[in-house]
């Protein structure tokens, strides 16, 4: 039985990947006991005792390395934790920085390098796309209001206005673009990215790189229904050869290590790279459901094993997300608030 901790158990309207990862781990060959890592006592995963045996609150990564590391070591001590699978963007830089130290304490991970993690910054996308033989929408990186005004006179509306790592708004007019620009600067600072909108099919690929140019499987999907936040609600597997080739080139060229998701727009014969996520997406259970159990393979890699590499999945499998509800005692919430664990 492997004790593994998973974060991102916030299964809300913008769900974290945690529960999908955990479902995959539970369906894998290696028996697991799961510790859920949360940042808020209300994260739904805390209450799903069939999926998550024990749950702990973590300090926010912004509080610094020391409290974060101490908390992880406390959990290791108490639970006999062996592996951690972090699933949220905001905590990943810290986990990557701590990787060696965690390893020296016997806590295993399977993460991208700091350099690889930095590729997800939106101002790196054109460079990544070029390296793997696909395109990016026309993109400008702005560091002042003057540059915005100049950019708006060059780009065709609608455009996307994005922060370097977070937030993306679609603007149809100059006024909207300016409003979103100010909102992003106020929250995240410069640079702000503006990008022409490409029309086409929204297709994503998930995979796990082995860190040496190969991978432990890829699955490509198309989003059929999305929520108002742009999150997938239903989807279908696809076997778009050029898209999968681009994903393989990505892994090979950057020698990607760990989980990743490439978000693209496919327009005729052109593929546009929109985003790189250095972790599993929230729909990761889709890959598990079509027979490519990427979370279980990543766990095996973290444990030093040699995971399967087959990835012959069928096109035309359907993914359906649904809402669910649960009634439980206040006691669990109480424990999370007072003790930070249950």
């Amino acid at each position: 039985m492997v004790k593994v901790a998973v974060s991102g158990i916030n299964a809300v309207d913008n769900p974290g990947p945690g529960l999908g990862i955990i479902k995959g781990l539970r369906e894998g060959e290696t028996p697991v006991s799961v510790v859920g890592l949360a940042y808020d006592a209300m994260e739904p995963g805390i209450y799903l005792t069939d999926l998550i045996e024990r749950a702990y609150l973590l300090p926010y990564p912004s509080e610094g390395e020391a409290p974060f590391l101490n908390r992880l070591l406390y959990i290791k001590e108490k639970e006999g934790l062996e592996v951690i699978i972090p699933a949220l963007d905001a905590e990943l830089p810290l986990f990557i920085d701590l990787e060696e130290r965690l390893s020296s304490y016997g806590l295993k991970t399977f993460l991208p390098t700091q350099k690889q993690f930095k590729l997800r910054a939106k101002d790196h996308l054109p460079e990544v796309a070029e390296a793997i033989g696909i395109k990016t929408p026309r993109t400008l990186v702005l560091t002042s209001y003057e540059e915005l005004m100049k950019a708006l006179s060059q780009l065709k509306f609608p455009i996307m206005v994005k922060g370097l790592f977070y937030k993306a708004f679609r603007a149809y007019t100059q006024a909207e673009a300016q409003q979103y620009f100010h909102a992003i600067v106020a929250e995240w600072g410069y640079p702000v990215i503006v990008q022409e909108v490409v029309k086409g099919e929204e297709m994503n690929v998930v995979g796990v790189g082995d860190g040496e140019g190969g991978h432990f499987g890829l699955v490509a999907i198309k989003k059929l229904w999305i929520t108002s936040l742009g999150k997938i609600w239903t989807g279908v597997t696809v076997t778009h050869p050029e898209l999968l080739t681009a994903a393989e080139s990505f892994v090979k060229h950057f020698r990607w290590r760990g989980a990743f998701e490439l978000e693209t727009i496919v327009s005729g014969d052109d593929i546009y790279l929109i985003e790189i996520n250095p972790r599993f997406p929230a729909w990761i259970y889709f890959a598990v459901g079509v027979g490519i159990n990427l979370p279980a393979r990543l766990l095996k890699a973290a444990l030093g094993g040699e995971p399967e590499r087959d990835w012959d999945y069928p096109a035309g499998k359907l993914y359906i997300r649904f809402t669910d509800d649960l009634v439980t005692d206040l006691e669990v919430f109480q424990h999370m608030v007072t003790r930070g664990e249950r």
Partner: peptide
């Protein structure tokens, strides 16, 4: 294309159905 006897057509590359 995957074409069913009922007239449902699925394109495995684009994910579109008709």
């Amino acid at each position: 294309l995957a074409i069913s006897e009922e007239g449902f057509v699925f394109d495995p590359e684009t994910g579109n159905s008709y």
